[in-house]
Design a protein around this nucleic acid. Structure first.
Lengths: 261, 261
DNA sequence: CCTGTCGTTTGACCTGCGTCAACCCTTTAC
DNA sequence: GTAAAGGGTTGACGCAGGTCAAACGACAGG
């Protein structure tokens, strides 16, 4: 079974977009009236500064589920802010194995992997129909030379990404299955909460295989862990619908010292 | 005979540091005559710009083997550039388990984990007597608002850290023991080469346990892998002295498709 | 010099998670 | 509607790498 099934672009059957745009449709944008501005890049800016940021984010595009926002090796020109939707990023080894390096949701930035070599070093794939603001990186750098708050905030976002990655390393390096799954669910829960959604009930946008890839597990292992958590009344899950019944129970799993195999 | 002896800090025997500084001794600094300037922060700057960077890096300090440069929770004020020596960074879980998140050598920057919360989120520990340049972060930000080249380069350094972390995730998430060890040795070899040392012969500054922690393995597993590589004439290792006999052999291990357990 | 400590190696054994396979449910295509 | 394919669950089994234990070598301190 090919592990990257999701990478196949679903047929663009009904709505045929401009062929050179593929499935990307252009929409008008403005940070100043975006309800994600407190989560996203404009955080902390004055109205005046935000207008200047507006000027540089001229396009917002749709990315259909299964389509790539960017792929390994493509030239890097933009940082992307997710307006709505859900993405995964992954890296591939030559032999076809792939590792999901993160899941990104509304208000989060994508593309910072491309800064160092001016080419992207991972793939970003939409897990549901999404909208993305395109931020020309050189103009963002210029503006952040002029607006200290913006500069600081951008540095914080990159730093947060590094810290997040350290957390994933800790997860992959020393946690057992149950801890990884609990950590994963608690992280999702917390991020949905920050966006005004229920902490306890949400849809998983990714397959068991993608969860497994992110957590360094096989899909069967993820499935079994979900079943076990369900038996223990920690969660109730069917298909993609996840209901966390006992948040504290999940937190306890994280603090029981149960080493990795 | 290790060809990278030069990395060992010259004996501190004769010059006794100020006692209230503990093991940190202050030394005069200048990027402009530092032989690491092509690896480190000043990369690409004009002489004039480099002088301005010099002004802001007023102190260089020694950190003795085993001492921390910074610890989790400490306020973040500086980015550190390693002048000489060798460090590890690690994160701890409450229960005492810890994960090494990286090994850093001369010319590399430390401390970017602290930007997002203004407090450090990992520990940085010297694995041998080292010298470190202290770069006040707010002044670095100011200067990078004025010098575009510096701004770009700093962004590249942070981005490179993110990309490196993705590589470690791939390693932890899908490689088997032999691949991890081979990847680790090849990475060290390449970084020593970039610093003008032998690609084939170097001293490991870290213990088997620290290697294991970084690679998500137990120390016994690391030791066994070294022994097996030695039997196969890929390396010759005794204690901390590593001699790579067959670089291509190690690379082949990386490309054999041997999944993770 | 000797002694204690720390790091490393090696063997024997065990187990958590991967592998393989069968089957089911849901969604999409026509 | 039906068919086909993708995604998920569950069981039986095997092995890579963890655990435990013993012994050794290198180095620091007295």
């Amino acid at each position: 079974m090919p592990s990257n099934r999701a990478l196949k672009t679903p047929r663009t059957a009904n709505n045929t977009p401009d062929p050179k745009e593929l499935s990307l449709a252009i929409i008008k944008t403005a940070c100043s009236n975006c309800n994600l501005r407190e989560l996203c890049l404009p955080l902390g800016l004055t109205d005046d500064e935000m207008e200047r940021l507006d000027e540089l984010i001229s396009v917002r595009k749709r990315v259909k589920r299964g389509d790539s926002l960017y792929r390994v090796g493509q030239p890097f020109d933009y940082i992307y802010a997710i307006r709505s939707g859900f993405f995964k990023t992954d890296v591939l080894l030559e032999d076809g194995r792939d590792q999901v390096t993160g899941f990104q949701m509304a208000g989060e930035l994508l593309g910072m992997d491309g800064i160092c070599t001016e080419r992207h070093t991972c793939n970003a794939v939409a897990l549901e129909d999404s909208e993305v603001c395109h931020i020309p990186f050189s103009r963002l750098e210029k503006l952040s030379r002029e607006i200290q708050t913006l500069q600081r905030h951008f540095h914080q976002v990159m730093s947060r990404e590094i810290v997040r990655d350290h957390g994933v390393m800790a997860l992959l390096g020393m946690m057992c299955v149950e801890e990884r799954i609990a950590a994963f669910l608690l992280n999702l829960s917390q991020r949905f909460t920050a966006r005004g959604f229920s902490p306890a009930e949400f849809n998983l946008r990714m397959t068991r295989e993608e969860i497994g890839s992110y957590l360094g597990l096989k899909l069967e292992t993820v499935s079994r862990a979900f079943s076990r958590f369900q038996e223990e009344k920690l969660i109730s899950v069917q298909q993609k619908h996840m209901h966390i019944l006992d948040i504290d129970g999940l937190k306890q799993i994280m603090s029981r010292h149960n080493q990795r195999a």
